[in-house]
Design a protein around this nucleic acid. Structure first.
Lengths: 178, 178
DNA sequence: TCCGTACTAGTACGAACGTACAGGAATGCC
DNA sequence: GGCATTCCTGTACGTTCGTACTAGTACGGA
């Protein structure tokens, strides 16, 4: 690690930014905090990222990979399940019950409300989720369910408590029924 | 207005804070911006509000009154309507189509995700909406619909576009059916 | 081996911030 | 009229921030 490793350094800064965002929110991210968290001098963060919003965008892009995997796993699980709404409810709850693991992605998604430059990235999640749900509910209802899950996310962030599974399954069943 | 009017001055600062929040978000609110917007010296904002979070809380409390009126109007409209889900969809869309009018309340509601001290105030809206919906959907489904409407709000803030009414009415009808 | 390029690190600057405070002005009470 | 209280205002302090910049260091191709 003593060798020069620009790529690894850049990634280390992005990872550090993600941890800071998880801890203090997007608004709490600064060049200095990211640098301290990554264990690099302040100059390094401004060298690799022209402005702060570029670092935020990079952190968001970094979560997109994890989101894609999550959606792929969800798609497979739904296909294999005899009761897709219940399976979706189960996985949604599991997702939201691990705040520390997905907090970065959630914070960034929420931040898109204030930062138009993050909107295209937010759409990646939004549209991906809709696509996964379409086979089970049709395109229109799939969009609706994705909106509903946005609400579940927001409510979880506001109350600090993940949703109960039964009402979740009930709602998803109602929305998936054609 | 040349007379001394502490009460009015305090209220003027709160109103100014609301406008700043609507324009730049809760994170963009500072003592100085609120003072400039209200046309009072910086010292005035620190005289009436010990800390910044106290000013934010006051601004949020100020929107609670408007929210109560909105919920009361919604309750009456639903009671008088032959098609409550459609009526709810219509009013939800109308609400979200006026971003400048409700932006302050929405920003503050969203900010509760990061500021635990705002959570009790957020619950006022959440619980009030659930109560209004309970007669038409039962307690459990009313909670679910309130969560769904949170999602509609978040999605509107992220995309910058209010929802279409037909899919909204479709979703609400499905969720209200017992 | 040399040299241009890419990287590193520390520092500096101006701006904005929260907050405190000291002193002046108006008000209400006796 | 005198006085305590409340209200008002301007300024100052210390902190943190984004960003820029300079000088130095490792690397990789000629």
């Amino acid at each position: 690690m003593t060798r020069r490793d620009p790529e690894g350094r850049r990634q280390a800064i992005i990872d550090a930014a993600g941890r800071v965002i998880a801890r203090e929110g997007v608004g709490g991210l600064t060049h200095r905090k990211a640098a301290a968290e990554a264990g690099v001098p302040l100059g390094a963060t401004t060298y690799y990222f022209t402005g702060l919003s570029e670092l935020i965008t990079a952190a968001f892009e970094d979560t997109a990979g994890a989101s894609r995997e999550l959606l792929a796993a969800l798609g497979e699980a739904l296909a294999a399940s005899a009761d897709p709404p219940a399976e979706l409810a189960r996985r949604t709850r599991a997702y939201l019950a691990e705040p520390e693991r997905f907090r970065t992605a959630n914070e960034l998604y929420l931040a898109a409300a204030h930062r138009p430059e993050l909107r295209p990235l937010a759409r990646l999640w939004t549209d991906g989720l809709t696509d996964v749900l379409t086979p089970y509910a049709g395109a229109a209802r799939a969009r609706t369910i994705a909106v509903f899950l946005d609400g579940v996310l927001l409510r979880t962030l506001i109350t600090g408590t993940p949703p109960d599974e039964p009402p979740l399954a009930d709602a998803l069943t109602a929305l998936m029924r054609r």
